[in-house]
Design a protein around this nucleic acid. Structure first.
Length: 871
RNA sequence: GCGAGCUUGGCGGAAUGGUAGACGCACGAGACUUAAAAUCUUGCGCCCGCAAGGGCGUGCGGGUUCGAGUCCCGCAGCUCGCACCA
């Protein structure tokens, strides 16, 4: 077959060529301290875990970030846009156990592979700043931060319950416990107390909550999620004395303290309930086997997720009784209840069945008597009762002694005043947020830089002995933490007294690694963890981009860590992320074979409404469109797309159609559509380059066609800029389609006055406006259009001519009673009287107005005329 | 249960309270071609009508307004998050 038309744009040669050129020129490098001559802009995408291969979610995430970075650079900002690796974590250890490859080798190999893919996608990263959290260069600095926080009182060591897998000899996170069994071993999980390190995030709870209101550029839902996670609630702690406790009861257990948000309902009390893990429950269990059995059952149930949802209220009457603080002659039973959480408040509640559905259910289950104390508005005290549904709203107190007649708000205040006066309670603010347990019994993490000495206790590793480096020669042939098994690593002299001592063998939760990487990026090679001029100069991150799955933990930990780093003098700010954008997922159809097994998209061919196997032609069931995942095999490999269509096509497609914050569907048709458009764009610009003479200055006279094209060009500059500013990248893509079509159509009017100038302007503008999205092709087009001149990465975003932003003619809609009846064309900003006259004269309008009385004439300049008529 | 978000053609989606459906995908018709692909032209919410034009239409029911996809009230459905948080 003979090729008549010129060769299309060849991404295979152009993409590597431009990537090499950008790298040679250091186009994306910035200094550690932002230059003073221009504003700074820090664009960051959440760094990836090096799992092996880049996936489409990454491509979408990093393409969005790259568009922002390149756009802001063109807009005159000094842009910091770094990339690194969240490189510690369990999958590396699993690979070691399953395949015998060392976690370090596995991780670094994966990084090499994924870095290669990122480079092929042409992202404008400042690669000199690359960091990997698994390298001592990084985690050693993290150890220093930890020690400074320890010094500052932001770290604590205390006993804590963990999920213990007795087969794997390891601690499991809650999500690794499935129905009470280890996800990997299947063993029945035990609750075990271990001495663990905690970061005192609760110290910052009020500040972390308040700070949310100063983050207007965060999505509302993320702020709401964090708000609920921090969970501030106002109430009271009330101490109930045990009524004649049994002989031999410890004195510190002679009362029960509860937290309540409803001290106003104390007179409605029916019982006290404590959590199964409450010290009082444990004390009762010592002498009461039935209680012990009930507690054991609660713990078993507590780990199963489904059970919590459906579990009915169950309890165990301890036989103990407490006195009512306001009516000491009345006593109430103390129960152990399965619905009371040890982790929240004091691990004990007072039950008020009339005002709390859970308490009501419990009272019904065990036939505990109670009386209503809050009268809802509009109810009559003489016949008001609570039966199936508790009233937890506001109202007027009754049956409540000195609180009678007060409303809920007054009664709360009065109850607290009385409790405080009696010394049995006080108003408190309670937080749902817990301190952050960071100890993990793992090898592939940052060693906690502490040495345990029999006489000196937990001793910080001195600065001159940092970093504490992970030993290389570890084995994974038996369960448990390889650091624990290592023959020599943990044995050291105590830095304080010189006696034999042992290293801490726990490592940090990997969320610690990702809590400050954005700060390290500002001075990634510094000897100290941070350089203040760099950190304070570049931070906060102006635009952070990542998945919604990190809405709570990562973002909250990072906000906390920044505050902790401020307290220890490492940075000078509180909030690390000024703007946050959460992008949607990349979905794909899923396919199943006749035997039910999943098929990769490669193995399937779409035929009309259905699909068949490529190899056998047998029909395939097309399943739901859902998130790309290995298990469903509905994945498309970025490398395969790059090889077939090029990086720019992949980039263009993930930016088209769907708004970035929504899920998008990856389709074959969509990719080829993107590839087709890019080829058309290339042909269109090349035609201009080859057939239109370069015109330096704007000609004196412009034909209508040239003037129109120029107006389209300038409106596109404005609208693409607006769209990018608002993260409406799909809209920017649509506007670029329009300009491309207009330029292609202009071949018909080529040669008219000013057309050469207008077409070259449009072509150059297209190159510059598409450069953030499809940078390689934009460079290639620009180099053909304007050979020997500066590349797109060095050029400024085009300027608009305000005179060209108004249309030469506007179409005005003419309505009668709000219904569209005609349109007229008019010059922009024409006098209202002219427009109204023209509107009334329009034939269809004149016909419909004939014989009617016009009550009112609405005129919105350049937009609409509306006639309101009588009758 | 609580909270947030969403609901617009066959599909993805666009729309400062002012012509609903930009742009794209899919589909139809035509040109080029021996043919196909590619490319180009063109049509495309539903209904009535030859047309001009008209009726209906942004999940459902109300309201505010000259005018509502957009604002307000109520309801339904979907998605996500949290969840016995006292």
């Amino acid at each position: 077959m003979t090729e008549i038309s010129p060769a299309p744009y060849d991404f295979r040669t152009a993409e590597p060529r431009w990537q090499a050129e950008w790298e040679r020129a250091g186009a994306f490098d910035v200094p550690d301290v932002p230059p003073a001559d221009r504003p700074k802009y820090y664009v960051l995408e959440m760094f990836p875990y090096p799992s092996g291969q880049l996936h489409m979610g990454h491509v979408r995430n990093y393409t969005l970030g790259d568009v922002v970075a390149r756009y802001k650079r063109a807009r005159g900002y000094s842009v910091l846009h770094p990339m690194g690796w969240d490189a510690f974590g369990l999958p590396a250890e699993n690979a070691a156990r399953e395949r015998g490859v060392h976690p370090r080798i596995w991780t670094l190999d994966n990084i090499a592979t994924m870095r290669g893919t990122l480079k092929r996608l042409g992202f404008s990263f400042n690669w000199d700043r690359e960091i990997a959290t698994c390298l001592p260069d990084y985690y050693g600095k993290q150890q220093k931060l930890f020690l400074d926080m320890l010094q500052a009182g932001l770290v604590e060591r205390r006993e804590s319950w963990v999920n213990w897998d007795p087969v794997d000899h390891t601690v499991l996170a809650n999500e690794q416990v499935v129905d009470g069994c280890g996800w990997r071993s299947g063993a029945l999980i035990e609750k075990k107390q271990l001495s663990q390190w905690f970061l005192r995030i609760t110290k910052f709870a009020p500040d972390l909550l308040d700070g949310l209101s100063h983050l207007p550029r965060w999505p509302d839902r993320v702020r709401t999620m964090q708000e609920r996670w921090i969970g501030r609630s106002v109430g009271a702690r009330v101490r109930f004395a045990l009524h004649s406790p049994p002989a031999g009861f410890d004195t510190d257990l002679d009362s029960v303290e509860v937290f309540t948000t409803r001290p106003d309902t104390l007179f409605g009390m029916a019982f006290i309930a404590v959590a199964a893990d409450h010290p009082l429950a444990a004390r009762v269990a010592q002498t009461n086997p039935e209680a012990a059995a009930f507690i054991a059952e609660c713990r078993r149930l507590g780990t199963s997720e489904e059970a919590i949802e459906t579990a009915e209220k169950r309890g165990f009457d301890t036989g103990l009784r407490v006195s009512h603080p306001f009516a000491p002659d009345q006593t109430f039973p103390v129960w152990i209840a399965n619905f009371v959480l040890m982790e929240y408040g004091t691990g004990a509640i007072f039950g008020c069945p009339c005002g709390d559905q859970r308490d009501l259910d419990f009272a019904h289950a065990y036939h505990l008597p109670f009386r209503p104390v809050v009268l809802p508005p509009g109810e009559d005290a003489t016949n008001f009762t609570i039966t199936g549904k508790a009233w937890d709203g506001d109202g007027t107190l009754f049956n409540s002694g000195f609180l009678d007649g007060l409303d809920t708000v007054q009664a709360k205040a009065e109850a607290i005043t009385r409790l405080e006066g009696m010394g049995v309670g006080r108003g408190v603010v309670n937080w749902r947020l817990r301190d952050w347990g960071i100890s993990r019994q793992r090898y592939w993490g940052c060693p906690i830089p502490v040495i345990h000495c029999a006489s000196c206790g937990a001793v910080p590793v001195p600065d001159d002995q940092l970093p504490v480096v992970l030993p290389e020669d570890v084995t994974f042939d038996r369960p448990g933490n390889p650091l624990e098994h290592h023959p020599t690593w943990k044995h050291v002299a105590c830095p304080r007294c010189g006696a034999d001592a042992t290293r801490e063998t726990d490592t940090f939760d990997t969320f610690v690694d990702s809590s400050w990487y954005f700060t390290r990026f500002t001075a990634p090679h510094a000897a100290a963890p941070t350089v203040r001029a760099a950190a304070d100069g570049w931070l906060p991150v102006d635009q952070y981009i990542g998945g919604i799955e990190h809405a709570i933990l990562h973002l909250l930990y990072a906000r906390f860590f920044t505050r902790a780093m401020r307290e220890t003098g490492h940075v000078g700010l509180d909030e690390p992320f000024d703007g946050l954008f959460t992008q949607g997922m990349v979905n794909h159809e899923s396919y199943r074979d006749a035997d039910g097994s999943w098929l990769y998209p490669d193995e399937v061919e779409r035929r009309g409404d259905g699909a068949v196997r490529r190899d056998t032609g047998m029909p395939v069931t097309v399943g739901r469109v859902e998130k790309m995942s290995k298990s469903k095999r509905n994945t498309v490999a970025p490398v395969a797309i790059i090889e077939r269509f090029g990086a720019d096509t992949a980039r263009w497609f993930v930016l088209s159609d769907s708004p970035p914050d929504r899920d998008m569907e990856w389709t074959e048709a969509g990719v080829s559509g993107a590839a087709r458009f890019l080829q058309r764009l290339f042909r269109t610009v090349r035609t201009v380059a080859e057939t239109v003479p370069d015109v330096a200055a704007r000609p004196e006279t412009l034909s209508d066609a040239a003037d129109t094209l120029r107006r389209i060009t300038h409106r596109t500059i404005a609208s693409v800029g607006d769209a990018l500013d608002g993260f409406a990248i799909n809209v920017a893509v649509a506007r670029l389609h329009e300009l491309t079509s207009a330029l292609a159509d202009s071949e018909r009017t080529a040669g008219q006055d000013g057309m050469d100038f207008a077409r070259r302007e449009a072509a150059r503008t297209l190159c510059l406006l598409t450069a953030p999205m499809v940078p390689h092709q934009a460079e290639e087009m620009l180099s053909i259009l304007e050979p020997g001149q500066a590349p797109a990465v060095q050029r400024a975003w085009p300027e608009t001519d305000p005179a060209l932003l108004v249309a030469r003619q506007v179409t005005i809609a003419i309505q009668i009673m709000g219904k569209l009846r005609a349109t007229i064309d008019a010059p922009p900003d024409a006098p209202a009287a002219d427009i109204l006259a023209q509107a009334e004269a329009e034939p269809n309008i004149a016909r419909l107005l004939d014989g009617r009385k016009i009550v009112k004439r609405i005129h919105v300049p350049n937009r609409i005329v509306n006639f309101v008529i009588a009758g």
